[in-house]
Amino acid sequence: MRSVDEIVNGVLEGDTRALARAITMVENEREGYEQVLERIYPHTGKAYVVGLTGAPGVGKSTLVDRLAKFARGHGHSVGILAVDPTSPFSGGAILGDRVRMQSHSGDPGVFIRSLATRGQLGGLSRASGGVIQLMDAAGRDLILVETVGSGQSEVEIMRYAHTVVVVVIAGLGDEIQMIKAGILEIGDVFCVNKADREGSDRTAADLRMLADSCSKGWIPPVVKTQARSGEGVDQLYQAIFGHRQYLESTGDMRHRQLRSAEAGIRDIIIEQVVDRTLDLARAEQVLDELLERLTARQTNPYQAAKHLLNAYGSQILRMCEGDAE
């Protein structure tokens, strides 16, 4: 096992193997992973992060592949994070997004990492934020994040991406599906892929109407693409960077940065306080006993939670102080 120093230095030098190792460390929450993330943090904030989300089979992987190729043509280095679902039964996963990302053979300017959700909801894995920071610190100019593709609730990506591309295809649902809250609301750019399919013009027109009617400020552009042939990918790329210019010229970029910084802190507080409370209670068999009483309706969840916070709060505070030193 290599030391934290070696990993951090390797990542900052852009070394592929060190980056890959660091990602594993963060994903598995191995000893030292927090130190790695702490030390690379000053070197983050340079990459532009684009999220692609949408139902399975709409062509996200192929689009990511083509966007990466386009970005390489402009001299940008690319990091790709592709998330696939973990089986709820076995805990295993088949991560198959690389099958459609084959345009970068022999190009060290494209780093692809597949992650399994490992039980996390919302279309990403728990490690996603850390992985994006590592790729950023390793000098990747553009980071493309492909979500699982379960469809309607993949809003997690908003936290990490500067631009969210929602990918749809014609024939997946009527207008009612479209105006449902959730995935369409988070789109900064809409992409109608497989645009040779019947009904694509109609779908694009519906989306345009939706885009015009709902938002204030930025009106999400609608782009038609055929990822496989590459048609329309240049327009998609331009739409993404149009959004970037918009964010940078208004106060919205700052707003997003602040929002994602707060979400980052919240995550860590939850990790430190919530996980530690439950771990301590579990270790002392207090949790088991409490759960028994809860299911027997002898107490209620609010009482139980307060009880645990009272019992372990001061101990956790001391642990946090220890970390801070």
Binding site: T16, R17, T24, S90, G92, G96, R98, V99, S105, I112
Partner: peptide
């Protein structure tokens, strides 16, 4: 392998030895 709880990265047909080695490194 998935059913045995492993995470399997599958890369499809006709990979060059370089592609395979590079994927193995990136995916750790």
């Amino acid at each position: 392998l998935r059913d045995a709880g492993m995470e399997v990265i599958y890369t499809g047909l006709r990979q060059t030895p370089e592609d395979i080695a590079e994927a193995a490194v990136q995916e750790d």
